[in-house]
Amino acid sequence: MQEAAVPLLSAWQNFYVIVGSASAALTGLMFVVVTLIVSMEGQGSGEATGAYATPTVVHFCAALLIAAILSAPWPELWNAGLLLGICGLAGVIYIIVIIQRARRQTNYQPVLEDWLWHMIFPFISYAALVFGAVALLNYATLALFVIGAATILFLFIGIHNSWDTVTYVTLARSRPENESQE
């Protein structure tokens, strides 16, 4: 079963080239955005950056790493499944840390949309990655679709959260100082 399933990965090559390239480009843009924010604001908040901006880069990098793992010429699928499972478990643990950071930071009060896009959707993506990695051994076709969906979700989470960060900073800077402190 393992040897017969390995050619399935070749059918996903274009998907992962597109997703991996987009993730790499957007990761680079996040570095530019964070640099511009810090240069405009003087000194950024380490707490807020650790809770919101850094995880966005991590999600883009997760999509890039998944694309790289599934683009490698594995002799058997369990090798890729093992790495994907480790990435998924690390991501689940990371999201728990991010939830603690978001609750601890005082610069921004998250609303429901923030909890969904910054904590819940990423948790679902990492959990789906773990599920897909385990299922890869016996249900390769289904698992590859689950992993593909998780990867796309990472990409869209990153895009949404990047846009959210940029619009928040832009709107916060455009308010008069006495209004923004209310």
Rank of each mutant, 00 (worst) to 15 (best):
Q2Y: 11
E3R: 15
V6C: 01
P7K: 08
L8G: 04
A11Q: 13
Q13S: 10
Q13K: 14
F15K: 03
V19G: 02
V19S: 04
S21L: 14
A25N: 04
A25V: 15
A25R: 05
L26E: 02
T27A: 13
L29M: 11
V32L: 15
V34Y: 13
V34W: 12
L36R: 07
L36V: 09
S39A: 15
S39C: 04
S39M: 11
M40R: 15
G42W: 12
G44M: 14
G44A: 13
S45T: 11
T49R: 06
T49L: 11
Y52F: 11
A53P: 06
P55W: 01
P55F: 04
P55L: 01
V58P: 00
C61D: 04
L64N: 05
I66K: 06
A67L: 07
L70V: 05
S71N: 03
A72K: 07
P73T: 02
W74L: 07
E76A: 06
L77Y: 01
L77C: 03
W78I: 15
N79Y: 13
N79G: 15
L82I: 12
L82C: 14
G85V: 05
I86T: 11
G88M: 06
G88Y: 03
G88E: 04
L89C: 09
A90M: 13
A90L: 14
V92T: 06
Y94T: 04
Y94P: 07
I95G: 00
I95Q: 07
I98E: 04
I98Q: 10
I99P: 04
I99S: 15
T106A: 12
Y108P: 12
Y108E: 14
P110Q: 11
P110F: 09
L112T: 07
L112K: 10
L112D: 08
M119Q: 08
I120Y: 07
F121L: 15
P122Q: 11
P122D: 02
F123P: 06
S125K: 09
Y126D: 12
F131Q: 00
G132F: 03
A133H: 01
V134F: 10
N138I: 08
A143K: 05
L144I: 08
L144M: 08
L144E: 02
L144R: 02
F145D: 05
V146W: 00
I147Q: 09
G148C: 08
G148V: 10
A149Q: 07
A149M: 07
T151S: 08
T151L: 04
F154E: 09
L155E: 05
F156G: 11
S162G: 11
W163E: 13
V166I: 15
T167I: 15
Y168N: 05
V169G: 00
V169Q: 14
A172F: 05
R173W: 01
R173L: 08
R173S: 13
R175M: 14
R175I: 01
P176S: 12
S180M: 04
S180A: 12
S180V: 14
